[in-house]
Every structure is written in structure tokens, then in C-alpha cells.
Design a protein around this nucleic acid. Structure first.
Length: 585
RNA sequence: GGGCCGGUAGCUCAGUUAGGGAGAGCGUCCGGCUUUUAACCGGACGGUCGGGGGUUCGAAUCCCUCCCGGCCCGCCA
């Protein structure tokens, strides 16, 4: 470990969106007096020191500065963990935006996602997601079968739902389905396949034929690496578990000798079967610290985003392994911050997770994509209770793209990022979609009738006169999302218009007031007039206005509160309103 | 203990590239819509930019230091 060599230096920091200087300096030439401020111009492609309003352009600059050949390969990775939650999507989406920016600059790009599915199942997950992405407990599946498969590769374990060829395939399919839902083209790559089809042969051969070099490099990062350490984990031919004890390597025949010993996982032990056997280089796997750089090598990876857990752990050793064992340059890295859900860390065991399908019930895909277009270095919170804030921010972002927001910074960001967020970089929308404010959409969601929704939206000025049917339908689609949101969070918009008469019991004066109001409505007045009349009627009958409103909410929503009632009643079918006010139906 | 990343209004976040006015939305409060009832409009309130020091004519921004939070520094991934 003498030479922690000089080639590296600070530029190996994976925090490329934090470090100041980074990319090519040099051409400062005309920097002296005045000019500058040119921010708006955005020269064409050329990397360098132009300011970018969108972080993905900064990353793309860095990648281009390496002089990569097409296709540019962007990779991510995931362990099959039981549930494909939104955290996994951080990695997919971060890579995606960089991929799209590079495509926009004329590159051919492959975005691949490795499923680390040759890893052993180390403990039984507490939650799983079924094929529809719904989270279920272990009670729904054969948990015993999972227990019997501890220590085996995910690809060698049956699908707990009995649908796919393996646990790993089930999980990969979930992730792929979610990517489809967000219209993100990723190529899933099975790590097991990379071994099985020989793709990894060259890496395995290099590692196992130069053990001294590998040990020297790794020992700087791992205490357990000594003169005996062999970085290869064969699959036991007898019991199928991943083993950790290699007793000999034969580089001629390209095989290893192993003993199937116990594996410690935390406080638990996964028992080995004691079998002594021989495995080929394809019948096993490399440990992560070598496997990751190995993937860079065989997949020719140019860029890889990863969570901050890797930043100070396996990234530095990966760089070292790449250069000094495999003889390649590591990809451009990018550390992203994790986000929290409802203020707490994502945790499948604690149940604090949310899936893509769940969220797509609550908001449009472009809003979710927008969330991931925000700066990756900020730790964000996705608060389902206040999803309206996120949607509002998206709407504003969209308005900024169409030049309707007086905010230079936001507009610059929107001008570049919006076409990617809506997935149409080469064909950006020319007309702003009609967007109902999210909370207003939640109000409309209190009534099922589509005609009602449209009428009220029009009356409140959210739908232009000349809007096309398609545009209106698209706008009203948000109502269902907001409705689901209100139901899920049981918030202040979670009211439902009652189709049947609730169980009511009013004082005589209230009842009389309701009858009067019914007559007024029957005579034909608009919502505004009805709203006014409610105050008049209450006074005429000497009852508190609030009591009268409560009676109205009880009749129509079976609740004590609700939306602004007069306007609401004005949009409903008159006969229905009259009969309900008279407690007749 | 060491390293890395983060900390801007009650909430969600811009702004830090390149030092110069502390901002937006939501919430709150007040007002408007002839009218206390969660949607619409206007206004106001609201911040020691985590604390302190330094550089500077000038610091949220650059430097130092401290505090807080997350991650890594065994194994695994």
C-alpha cells in the first residue's frame, strides 16, 4: 500500500455537484472587465465553464470531458430486497436525466441497471411487493420456503408469488414495470447472467490470477484481507449456498476448491453444509468491492450515480481496484442524497415506504419525475400529507417554462429541465396544459359526476372558454388523483357528497330554514345567490349561521364541515338539492 | 474519534457556479368577493441565511472554527 498513487488526488471525489472547480478551466481568457453575466446565452454543447441551470448538464459536461465513445453507458444497481420502493427510483431517475441530456446533445446512450441477484439472501424480508407492486406481509407467501433458502443467490430462490422463475426475476420485473410507468427506458442486467454467460470471465480471471495485487489493494480498505484471502465466493454444489471459504485456486483449470462453511449474518448464522468441492470461475461470484468495478469494466460504464452510503465506502476502493487491478478508469460518479418519506428515513421493515404505483394514484407521472429533477445534493422530504405543495411547485415550474412566472432562476431551470420532465426533449409542448390547482381538484373530487366537476371548474375560471374536449379531460384527470389523496390522508378535503339521505335530526327552526332554502333553490338561483340566501335564511329564523351551515353539511356530506356550500349546491342538480334540503331523499 | 455531505421563514424549497437588493409558494393573520365556513383575489406578518470569527468598501455566497443532522470509517451490499 506504499503508493496511494498520485494520479488520483481530489478529482476522484464523487461529489461532483458540490466541488467548486472541477471541470476544465483554462479558457478564462476574456475574464477581465465587465462582460460576463452572459448566463442566458447557453452556448451550444461545448462543455466547460458555462453556467448550467440544470444539474444534469453539469454532469453531462463532466462525462463529455472524459471524451467517451458512443454509446455512453449509464449504470445503476440494486439489490433485490423484496420491495421496489421509491428510493430505488432515485438512482434510476438521476441516471435517466443525465441520459436524456446526453441524448439531447446527440449521443447514443444506454441506461443499464444491474440487479445484484447473485448475492445471497441474508435475511428474510419483512415485506414483499406482489406483481402489482402492492406491499404485502410475509403471511401472504410461503415464508418457510424463504427461510430454507437463506444463503442462496436470489436467482436460485423461487418467486414467493410463484409467478416468475425466481425471487430475483420477480423483483427485477417490479422495478422494470415501475420504470415503464414513468416512461424511463432501462435495460435490466442480471448479475447472475453476467457470470453465467462468461461476460465476467475476464474480470474473474484477472482477479484470481493476481491475488497478491488484489490483496495489496484491498487491504487498505478491509481489515480482513490478509495473505490468505481469496476474493471469490463459490456456490456450493451440494446445498446451493454462497460460500466464503476458498482453500485453493487453480488458474490453469480455472477452478477453486472450497468448503461450505457457516456464514455469519449479524447475530445470526447461516449454516453451511460442510461440503468440500470444486467450482469453476463461473460457479460463484466476486465480492462487492471487486464486483462493482468489474461491472464498470465489462459493461463499459461511463457514468454511475449512487447513494451517499457508497461515497466514502466502496467508491474509493472501487476506484483503486479499477485502476490498479483491472487497469481501467472508473466512471464519472455522482453521489445523490437520500430523501425521506413523511419526515422519516425510508424503511421497509418499519413500513415507511411508498411505491411508484401508489404515488401514481395520487399525482401525474410528470410531477413525480419533477421531484427527481430537483437538485440531487439536497436531502428532500416527500410528504404525502402535503403532496399539494409538491404539485403546486410543479405547476409553478411548468408556468415558468411558459414564461408566466417572474422568477429568473426558476425560469432558467424550467426552460432547460421541463422538456425532460415531461419526457419530450425533442418535441417540447408548445401549449401549457390546463392545470386545476390540486386542492381545488380535491374539492371537485367530493362529487362523482363529471359534468358537475367541469361546470364548477369552468365557473371558477380554471378552464378557458375555448378549451378542447381533450384538454378538459386531461385537466379533469387530476381530480381522481386528488380524490385519492384526500381519501388516503383523510385530510380536510376528504368529504363525499352523500347520495342517500344521512340520518338527520334537526330542531324545528333549523328544519324550517332548510325548507325555506329549498324553496329558494327550487325557484332557480345560482350558487352565489344560494350562498347569500343561506345567511339571510339563518337570520330570518333566528338561528346561528354556523348551525345552519352545519345542518347543510350534515345533509350533503354527513359531516359538520365541508367546502363552500352555496357555490357547491349551485352546481348540483337542482331537484336533488331541493329534495335533500327538504329531507325527502 | 476521523472523513464526506447537508443546515435559508411555521412548512416545502429557490438563491451559493461568478461576493453587492434575503426571495417564492403554501400556511398564519387581516381584508375583499353585499354575507364568519377550508376553492378565488389583495395585503400584512414572518428569517441571528445553524453559531462565532476572519478576508472584503461589501459575505447566505470565500476562509477558519464550533454546533446539529445524515452517511461512511467492522462484515455485507
Amino acid at each position: 500500500m506504499t503508493d496511494r498513487d498520485a494520479t488520483g488526488g481530489p478529482s476522484d471525489s464523487p461529489h461532483i455537484l458540490s466541488d467548486r472547480p472541477a471541470v476544465g478551466e483554462g479558457e478564462e481568457a476574456d475574464g477581465d472587465d465587465g462582460d460576463a453575466l452572459a448566463g442566458g446565452e447557453t452556448s451550444d454543447g461545448t462543455a466547460g465553464d458555462d453556467f448550467h441551470a440544470f444539474w444534469a448538464d453539469v454532469v453531462a459536461d463532466e462525462i463529455e470531458a472524459r471524451g467517451v465513445d458512443d454509446p455512453v453507458v449509464i449504470k445503476g444497481g440494486v439489490s433485490p430486497s423484496g420491495v421496489a420502493h421509491l428510493g430505488n427510483f432515485n438512482e434510476i431517475m438521476r441516471g435517466y436525466f443525465v441520459a436524456e441530456v446526453l441524448r439531447d446533445r446527440g449521443h447514443e446512450v444506454r441506461q443499464v441497471f444491474t440487479s445484484d441477484d447473485k448475492d445471497p439472501l441474508r435475511k428474510i424480508p419483512r415485506k414483499l411487493a406482489n406483481a402489482d407492486g402492492e406491499i404485502v406481509g410475509l403471511g401472504e407467501v410461503d415464508a418457510g420456503a424463504l427461510g430454507r433458502n437463506l444463503g442462496r443467490p436470489y436467482t436460485a430462490i423461487p418467486d414467493p408469488f410463484g409467478e416468475r422463475e425466481s425471487y430475483a426475476a420477480h423483483f427485477a420485473a417490479l422495478l422494470e414495470a415501475d420504470a415503464d410507468r414513468l416512461d424511463v427506458p432501462v435495460e435490466m442486467v442480471s448479475n447472475t447472467e453476467l457470470y453465467a454467460d462468461g461476460t465476467f470471465d475476464s474480470v474473474t480471471r484477472t482477479v484470481l490470477s493476481d491475488l497478491d495485487r488484489v490483496r495489496e489493494v484491498l487491504s487498505a480498505y478491509q481489515d480482513k484481507v490478509d495473505g490468505e484471502y481469496v476474493p471469490f465466493n463459490p456456490v456450493c454444489a451440494e446445498c446451493g449456498k454462497i460460500t466464503e471459504t476458498v482453500t485453493g485456486v487453480d488458474t490453469e483449470s480455472e477452478t477453486v476448491e472450497y468448503v461450505c462453511t457457516d456464514m455469519a449474518v449479524g447475530d445470526e448464522t447461516i449454516e453451511g453444509c460442510g461440503h468440500e468441492g470444486t467450482a469453476t470461475f463461473r460457479e460463484g461470484k466476486l465480492p462487492w468491492r471487486l464486483e462493482w468495478p468489474g461491472q464498470w469494466d465489462v459493461l463499459d460504464v461511463d457514468f454511475e450515480p449512487f447513494g451517499k452510503d457508497h461515497a466514502e465506502g466502496s467508491w474509493p476502493s472501487g476506484v483503486d481496484v479499477a485502476r490498479n487491478v483491472l487497469g481501467i478508469e472508473p466512471p464519472v460518479p455522482m453521489v445523490y442524497e437520500w430523501f425521506t418519506l413523511n419526515g422519516e428515513p425510508l424503511s421497509s421493515s418499519a413500513g415507511n415506504i411508498v411505491t411508484v404505483p401508489e404515488l401514481l394514484d395520487l399525482l401525474e407521472p410528470e410531477v413525480l419525475r419533477y421531484f427527481f429533477a430537483l437538485h440531487p445534493k439536497k436531502a428532500r422530504d416527500l410528504d404525502v400529507e402535503r403532496l399539494d405543495q409538491l404539485v403546486d411547485r410543479f405547476d409553478r415550474f411548468e408556468r415558468a417554462y411558459f414564461g408566466e412566472v417572474d422568477d429568473e432562476g426558476l425560469t432558467a431551470f424550467a426552460e432547460r429541465a421541463y422538456p425532460f420532465v415531461v419526457g419530450r426533449p425533442e418535441d417540447p409542448p408548445t401549449e401549457k396544459p390546463i392545470r386545476l390547482p390540486y386542492t381545488f381538484a380535491a374539492v371537485l373530487g367530493m362529487v362523482d359526476d363529471p359534468a358537475f366537476r367541469e361546470r364548477l371548474a369552468r365557473d371558477e375560471g380554471h378552464i378557458p372558454e375555448d378549451a378542447s374536449d381533450e384538454a378538459i379531460a386531461a385537466a379533469l384527470a387530476r381530480v381522481e388523483k386528488a380524490r385519492n389523496w384526500a381519501e388516503r390522508t383523510e385530510n380536510e378535503y376528504d368529504y363525499r357528497l352523500q347520495t342517500a339521505l344521512p340520518n338527520v335530526d334537526f330542531d324545528d327552526d333549523v328544519a324550517a330554514a332548510l325548507d325555506d332554502l329549498a324553496d329558494f333553490v327550487a325557484a332557480g338561483h345560482d350558487g352565489e345567490a344560494i350562498q347569500s340566501e343561506m345567511y339571510e335564511t339563518a337570520r330570518d329564523h333566528g338561528i346561528e349561521v354556523s348551525d345552519f351551515f352545519s345542518a347543510g353539511y350534515r345533509l350533503f356530506f354527513d359531516d359538520t364541515q365541508g367546502p363552500r356550500l352555496g357555490e357547491f349546491l349551485g352546481e348540483l342538480e337542482r331537484e336533488y338539492v331541493v329534495e335533500r334540503l327538504r329531507r325527502e331523499a
